[in-house]
Design a protein around this nucleic acid. Structure first.
Lengths: 133, 133
DNA sequence: GGGTTGCACTTTCTAAAAGTTAGTGCATTC
DNA sequence: GAATGCACTAACTTTTAGAAAGTGCAACCC
């Protein structure tokens, strides 16, 4: 059996640990690193976009998932939502200052991954060959 | 209708784009940023661990998901797996050089998220209050 | 002027993924 | 000699993601 997860909120000093199962930092991390979270944050790093503009940028996302993702990111204070109650409606999404800082880290990751894709593909082939050959 | 996704493999110069639906970089990114991928990478950043050691570190992961996650990361060349065919078996997991570089970026993210959790929680409360109040 | 398209979503339904449980075969610990 | 640990896999269930359709109105097209 493993020890109790650490994630305390004591004497005015909060300690958060993503390795602890019930730590709220884990779900926040998931909002950011989830399949669509990363891409939405990265897309918004380029500026302000309307809902359907984002949907076109993040190729393959469904309306439902984009809405859900943006709501989670807004609730966490990474994304700012500004709606004009006109007809047709106009809703603009942008990053908050906090969101911008975090999005920069996500972009570092994305660029790193894209840059090493040739090596990843080579590794994939080696791995598969070792089992099928 | 949105334009065709960009992700070309032409004239010896590969261009990868996570925003393109069918680009292989997207699934690689998902392996890293998936719920357990981030945590496995971060755990392995501290050194070499056996399967069940990792399972205890990454609190809450099931055997199935840890195995699946590690296999994907191994296939992508981020993780190295070394098995001794003894009884009982001994299997050690560690990061490759490439994995170490990428894990460092993931750790930056994790630390950033953990550090801003007080603000995230405050944002959550504001968001919820605005709807329920 | 009638049909299509777009806006930002939500709701319903189905398909895929994640989680849970049990089993493997042997060795060490209690 | 019973229990536990090792590193998994396989079968089953639950949760989540994705696909499709609906909303109500307005601007564009021919």
């Amino acid at each position: 059996m493993s020890e109790a997860p650490e994630c305390t909120a004591e004497h005015d000093q909060l300690l958060f640990d993503v390795f602890a199962q019930r730590c709220p930092s884990r779900s926040t991390l998931e909002h950011l690193t989830g399949r669509w979270g990363v891409l939405a944050m990265a897309a918004l790093h380029d500026g302000t976009f309307r809902f359907n503009e984002l949907r076109r940028r993040v190729h393959g996302v469904s309306e439902k998932m984009l809405a859900q993702t943006l709501q989670a990111l807004e609730r966490d204070g990474f994304v700012h939502r500004e709606a004009q109650h006109t007809i047709p409606p106009k809703v603009e999404y942008s990053l908050t200052d906090r969101g911008k800082r975090t999005a920069a880290l996500l972009l570092d990751l994305i660029r790193d991954v894209e840059a090493q894709m040739p090596e990843v593909i080579a590794a994939n082939e080696r791995y598969d060959a070792a089992r099928n050959g």
